[in-house]
Amino acid sequence: MTRLILLGVLSAFFFSGTFVLNRAMSLQGGSWVWTASLRYFYMLILLAGWLVLAGRTRVLKGVVAAFCRNWCFWTVAGGIGFGVFYALLSFSASFAPGWVVATTWQSTILATPVVLLLFGKKVPRRGIFFTLLIFLGIVLVTVEQATSASLKEVLLGVLPVLGAAFAYPIGNQLLWEVRHGSNPLLPRIRDPVLDDSLGRVLIMVLGSLPFWILLILVTRPAAPSTGQLINTATVAVFSGVIATSLFFKARHLAKTPFELSAVDATQSTEVLFSLVGEIVLLHGSLPGVAGAEGIVLSVVGLALYVRSQTVGEG
């Protein structure tokens, strides 16, 4: 369990760059559509290039073959888990500071048990009280944001994140189900290439491409600036490649719903990393009393949640 937690926290550190850089691009006037989609186009190039340079073309060919055999499933899984998730998260950055988005994103801790139930899994009850602490923290942060922004800005900065909080675990669970589960509604994919962390990320990236292409065609955003191209490339490396690979590795090592929930819970540490990053890099202001209390409740809720799962497993 300790290894899973450490991998999860490390992935959260790199994930936090997403919230800070997305906010930076929003303040510079960049379109959220490019902020979201370019990350995955970069990831495709980076992952494929790395596999070729590392002499692992076998994995690259295996991913393409596995995708073609079940292209419909991977388009759905990647479109939800990577596409819908990140489009909503990027959109919200236009209306709320990065640390607010990061804190609201912790609602995924509440969403994960719901998603597991939808897939017919048993979920741990020991951590319900602690997830409520996390939720209360999110409410306090939202209240503080409401005092400095219009109702429209608050809703557009918070509601999309709540949608993303469900989309991400749904996509991840779809991937987990076809590898470990026996859901009669889903294909059983026991392809060895999915045992590779980069292979799992790459096949989900491929699955998300139709979503991004359709989104660009529908919204027709203005061309991205040079700064946006550079920032999205940075996000692609830190968050898309490093963080996602670490997170998928932790989830891959998880064998029970208890461990899956604990891994997902580590993402609450993104709040602290995002707050520090926004203050240092974007000269953001410290949160007020309500915001600070919300952050504390979210992080404490995470620590107690993970402890409850660890004690229960022992």
Rank of each mutant, 00 (worst) to 15 (best):
L51M: 13
T232F: 03
Y168A: 09
S208I: 01
R125N: 12
A292P: 14
F119R: 13
K249F: 11
V193N: 00
G181N: 15
V299F: 13
A164L: 00
G78M: 10
V299R: 10
K255F: 04
G29D: 09
V123S: 01
L47P: 04
K255G: 03
G240Q: 04
G294L: 12
V161N: 00
F85Q: 15
F73P: 01
G312E: 15
T57D: 09
A54E: 14
T234G: 12
A149S: 15
L110E: 11
T75C: 09
F273E: 04
V241S: 02
G301Q: 15
G227D: 10
R23E: 11
M25P: 12
F19R: 01
L304E: 04
V141Y: 03
T18Q: 14
A233S: 07
F258Y: 05
G30Q: 14
L151A: 10
T35K: 07
W176E: 03
K122L: 11
L186S: 06
I230W: 13
A65H: 02
L209P: 00
F119N: 10
V64E: 02
R69P: 06
L198P: 02
V280F: 05
A236E: 13
R58K: 06
G29W: 07
L206P: 02
R220I: 11
G314Y: 06
G81H: 05
K152Q: 14
F85M: 14
I138G: 03
